[in-house]
Amino acid sequence: MNLFNELKKGLEKTRKGFTEKIEQLVSFSTKIDEEFLEELEAVLIYADVGLRTTEKIMNNVRQGVKDKKINSPADIKPFLKSEISSLLGRDLIRTKISGLPTVILVVGVNGVGKTTTIGKLGQYYQRFGYKIMFAAADTFRAAAGEQLEIWAQRVNADIIRHEEGSDPAAVAYDALQAAKSRNTDILIIDTAGRLHTKSNLMEELKKIYRIISREISEAPHETLLVLDATTGQNAMNQAQLFSQAANVSGVVLTKLDGTAKGGVIVAIKSELEIPVKWIGIGEKADDLRPFQPNEFVEALFDDK
């Protein structure tokens, strides 16, 4: 199976919940009336596109109808495709691997898959021959360090670990020193899951961030917020508050294969201006892949 088909397969649920619903709607409707538009709005909301973004899209649809760009229900699908495409932007924005080391900080609420994401990121970069190091700065959750250690062995990465319960900023500091002295290409720092509403934990995150940028001035080169694709509108709150604490530069959307609601990708990009950089569409290590908006839209709207 080629990459595109794999992506399509991973997005199958979203296609079913979104694209096929639109197709059904189109095939059952003869003209575009208020009822049709309401149903369309429902499909968007149902796909977790979010109220605000749905409103935005629906306004454009209504305008399109007025401007005679949309004349029959059949015109809706291509119209939406171009709408979503323009909301997402076209191109993949890669993490630039430059300077020794390139530091990637990984943050998010509990249970979104941060540690697993780091393992898979390690796997991805290892294939290009980079020297990789993990920092186990999740010193809170039981056995988080062990989990990362197992991944480190799998992908042949160095790992810096402290005792459970020790200061995560100190782990980050040690990892930065070690990465510098060992000529590591990529240092990926794991952090404990924290709810964005817990101010003390967010302060802790700020401290980790401060330490990193104090030791290497451009670092972290990337702060990835890991979001669970099954999360609803709370994803917006998460993105906002984590951005305030750690200057989030990209989103990793995990567990996308399990949800029919890939719509949250659109909401994140259009409401928060944070690009989705990676998507997880399966359990295998290479099921975490760079997010290419154009490819995503094609796979989502592909007929065959």
Partner: peptide, 12 residues
């Protein structure tokens, strides 16, 4: 179930 789950909670 995670309280933050979106529209998919029902399917799950």
């Amino acid at each position: 179930v995670d309280a933050m789950t979106g529209q998919d909670a029902v399917t799950v």
